[in-house]
Design a protein around this nucleic acid. Structure first.
Length: 831
RNA sequence: GCGGACGUGGCGGAAUCGGUAGACGCUGGAGACUUAAAAUCUUCUGCCCAUGGCGUGCGGGUUCGAGUCCCGCCGUCCGCACCA
């Protein structure tokens, strides 16, 4: 008998067998029910990390399980291959972004293959290849031609050293994350996708996504940020007017000022004739936007000298330019009600403006406001003319009705969501297929000229956009007039690439982005698995893109992902030397630094990251323990939505279990006869339980049940039941540890691949126990347990309970006050 | 500040409907096998003043019975943030 499972040999063998048999290639024409399991595709940064391993293992277990339960499973893999790291590598290592990216893909693909994932590699795609991004350009033009794309001047974060636009996340304390240069606000002409056109749909659609985490739905809801209120006009003392938006029209009579944003046209107009105002506006722009700065920043205003006429005849209000009013939200102007808004309260306190209470919470009918802070709760209107006595909600409706009747305002809805700016002044992305002609204006690149490919001969030795400074690339003839014209030298935000890759996986014809009917046969994705860091942007953009495709008539699909699961991170202890250097796990042993023996401080358990050096590279681990042990560990212990702490003990334990399985699997079946009713029952309970747990993605629970079954089999005496249990266990563990399962299946000459077998059937008769353990309690406290036949009548159970020694003693000759009998569960004797 | 999640042994965690808290794994103890070690196997492992008592962050409540439901605190983590 071979004593050990040789993982290295078995892994390679079965991976090759699956590859050659195209076991996991999804068949578009299959008669089986189709299902689509997808993990978020990786960015090819260099090597795979433990987070990838955990993510893809979870998806793999589900995909393999669904195959075994009779589904035709689409489980593809590809590469989110455009993006900045490739350009940074180009600058630092003098290597072309494409060369760097494709090399990384090669490395990471080989690494993924070694983990034995049941992936359909025939559908592999990389977003940096023209046969992907060319179709994306076609979709962009479809959107453009149906009015979902527009061009607008917009303020961006401009890094003057790197000469590029930075995303908000790349601006740290007002400086560029790479260059450290002070970031400037610049106006640039940018392409926008009209995501706000779908704001309501995207919001309402969240309601249908029952298999998404509530947390993610809530985050998206807050991101979209729908607010309903009143938009109305104040007449100004200079003859103009100012439009404001409020969600609290009920507090109209509490208004004591009007404030506009620093970049509001009214503020600009005032500044033109008033240097003090201009200076104030300049000062507003300097303020930082980080949380801490906003927290401490004082509310500041500049009195324009203008006044606004209250539309309901409540006098004239001063008009300020204020630093806390945002141009980007609502109309860029507000009316201030200090008694019922904290910011307005702070502002009014500073500038000695009236604070008049118009909503009373009942306890304090006195309308003169003397609270130390604004009151924002519900209540009854006071000091408000025709609104007096109404509650807040009624008053809102009354004011909106009055405004609409009087023609000075209307009920209105405002969203926090902005249109999606997709222009990036970078090389390594999808070129925007538009040509700018001095005579014809913007012209779409004709379809037959797609793809617009990236030039290869680019340089990264100077900052700025290599496409823009390429000597010839941008110079083209205008498709309309044939005159000299220029290509748009911007590329699309890489979130565009990841907004439809799941459709291209389902169907990839050469001549168009996808075939509608094939795509619709696979989509929506039944289960999507990835990190919660994509809860908003990627998932919202993909939802939008899908709706936009439906809008232009390319697919009949509202939501791309029916089920979403956000898995936790892989974490590890951190270690620090006395001098503050971070140390890697393999530099530390027994609490001291191996090199030099210096003392080591064990820090918090944190997400694996290069900066804290607490990463564990999957590759040597797979070398040492084999793919199955790594997979098993990824599924064990921690619930999948929570963080998993990597530990040496954990992987060792997983490896021990794989070997334990092998001791059961290795060799011939015993050939013993006779049945073992208890083992049969345990087996069928495990089949049902593990199946349900996998469906629920509760892999840690499935693992626990498999441990229990394994122990039960080990302890059982030889019997036909035991032989059956062992053969069945092979199939039960197959989704999780597929290599040892194939090896064992082949050794027992079961025929075919275990990957192609069916999930074992459950015998429902064996799921019910014939005996139950009943808890005997006194006043709710456990005193004894009794094992009785299942389904025994109440009175018999009660009699048995009252005959128990401890109960007789507790009763001490008295009759119980009450006896509660829960059939097949417990008896509670109340004294 | 607003919104949300969570809090169970030495550790990760189970407990699906309000019904035996601590499944399963890790760590640790004892033992078997061995010249020895590794591996493996057996067994124990919430706490304490131990025929009993106490225990699911803290304080109350509902109930025959609460980790689970209700009220009030405390703590940790996450998201958003001058959003009118």
């Amino acid at each position: 008998m071979a004593s050990r499972f040789n993982a290295l040999k078995a892994d390679a063998h079965w991976q090759q067998v699956w590859d050659e048999a195209r076991t996991f290639a999804a068949d578009d024409h299959s008669a089986r029910p189709k299902t689509y399991v997808l993990e978020m595709f990786p960015y090819p940064s260099g090597k795979i990390h433990m987070g990838h391993v955990r993510n893809y293992t979870m998806g793999d277990v589900l995909a393999r399980y669904r195959r075994m339960t009779g589904h035709e499973v689409l489980h593809p893999m590809g590469w989110d291959a455009f993006g900045m790291p490739a350009e940074n590598a180009a600058m630092e290592k003098k290597v072309h972004p494409g060369t760097w990216t494709r090399a990384n893909i090669g490395t990471m693909k080989a690494q993924l293959k070694r983990l034995g994932f049941a992936l359909d590699w025939t559908r592999e795609l990389a977003t940096c290849e023209p046969d992907y991004y060319g179709h994306e350009q076609a979709l962009f033009l479809d959107f453009y031609q149906s009015g979902l794309v527009y061009r607008k001047e917009s303020a961006v974060n401009w890094d003057p050293v790197d000469m590029t636009v930075l995303a908000n996340e790349q601006v740290i304390d007002g400086r560029g994350w790479r260059s450290g240069a002070l970031v400037e606000k610049r106006k640039l002409s940018q392409w926008f996708l009209k995501i706000t056109q779908f704001a309501d749909e995207l919001l309402d659609g969240l309601g249908s996504l029952e298999h998404w985490p509530d947390k993610v739905r809530l985050m998206q809801e807050n991101w979209i940020g729908k607010s309903q209120g009143l938009q109305f006009r104040f007449a100004l003392s200079d003859g103009g007017s100012v439009e404001v938006f409020t969600t609290r029209p009920d507090t109209m009579f509490g208004a004591s000022f009007v404030a506009v944003a620093a970049d509001h046209p009214i503020a600009q107009a005032v500044a033109a004739g008033n240097p003090d105002a201009a200076a104030f506006i300049e000062r507003c722009k300097q303020g930082g936007t980080t949380a801490a700065e906003l927290e401490t920043q004082e509310k500041l205003g500049f009195d324009t000298g203008l006044t606004a006429t209250h539309p309901l005849g409540a006098g004239e209000l001063p008009v300020y330019i204020a630093n806390f009013v945002l141009m980007e939200y609502g109309t860029g102007a507000v009316f201030g009600v200090p008694a019922h808004d904290q910011r307005d309260f702070d502002f009014a306190t500073k500038y000695a403006l009236p604070i008049r209470r118009v909503v009373s919470d009942g306890d304090k009918p006195d309308p003169d406001f003397r609270e130390p802070e604004a009151y924002t709760g519900p209540g009854t209107l006071v000091n408000s003319h025709f609104l007096d006595g109404m509650d807040v909600e009624d008053a809102k409706r009354a004011v909106i009705a009055r405004a609409e009747d009087g023609g000075w305002g209307k009920g209105s809805t405002v969203y926090r969501l902005r249109d999606w700016g997709v222009s990036r002044q970078r090389y390594w992305g999808t070129p925007i297929p538009i040509i700018h002609c001095p005579t014809c204006g913007e012209v779409a690149v004709p379809r037959e000229q797609l793809p617009v490919t990236l030039p290869d001969d680019v340089t990264f030795d100077v900052p700025g956009n290599p496409l823009d400074r390429h000597p010839t690339w941008k110079h083209v003839a205008c498709p309309h007039c044939g005159g000299e014209a220029l290509r748009d030298t911007d590329t699309l935000d890489t979130f565009a690439d990841s907004s439809w890759y799941f459709i291209r996986f389902a169907s990839q014809p050469k001549d168009r982005p996808f075939d509608r009917s094939v795509a619709e046969s696979w989509l929506p994705v039944a289960q999507y698995i990835g990190g919660v860091e994509h809860a908003i942007l990627h998932l919202l953009y993909a939802r939008f893109w899908t709706r936009a495709l439906r809008h232009v008539g390319l697919i009949d699909l509202a939501e791309p992902f029916t089920g979403l699961f956000t898995q936790g991170m892989v974490t590890h202890e951190t270690y620090k030397a006395a001098d503050g250097r971070w140390l890697a796990p393999d530099e530390v042993r027994d609490g001291v630094e191996i090199a030099g023996g210096g003392a080591v401080t064990v820090g918090r358990v944190e997400k694996m990251s290069k900066s804290k050096k607490n990463t564990v590279d999957p590759e040597p681990i797979v070398d040492q323990y084999g793919a199955d042990a790594v997979r098993w560990f990824m599924l064990s212990d921690s619930p999948p939505e929570r963080d998993l702490e990597w530990s040496e003990n954990g992987i060792e334990g997983a490896w021990r279990f794989v070997q334990r399985l092998w001791r059961l699997f290795d060799g011939e079946a015993s050939g013993a006869t006779g049945s073992d009713a208890a083992l049969d029952r345990k087996l069928h309970q495990t089949i049902a339980g593990v199946g349900a747990d996998i469906e629920a993605l509760s892999f840690n629970k499935a693992v626990a049940k498999l441990y229990e079954l394994t122990s039960a089999i080990e302890k059982a005496a030889p019997s036909a039941s035991r032989d059956t249990a062992i053969a069945t266990l092979m199939r039960l563990v197959a989704p999780m540890v597929p290599h040892i399962a194939e090896e064992a299946w082949a050794a027992r000459a079961q025929g075919g691949l275990i990957a192609d077998t069916e999930w074992p059937a459950v015998d429902p008769a064996l799921l019910v126990e014939d005996e139950v353990t009943i808890a005997i309690q006194v006043n709710g406290k456990l005193r004894e347990t009794l094992t009785l036949a299942k389904g025994l009548p109440k009175d018999e159970v009660e009699a048995a309970a009252l005959a128990v020694d401890k109960i007789v003693r507790a009763l001490d000759g008295n009759a119980p006050r009450k006896v509660i009998v829960v059939p097949d569960r417990l008896v509670n004797v109340v004294l």
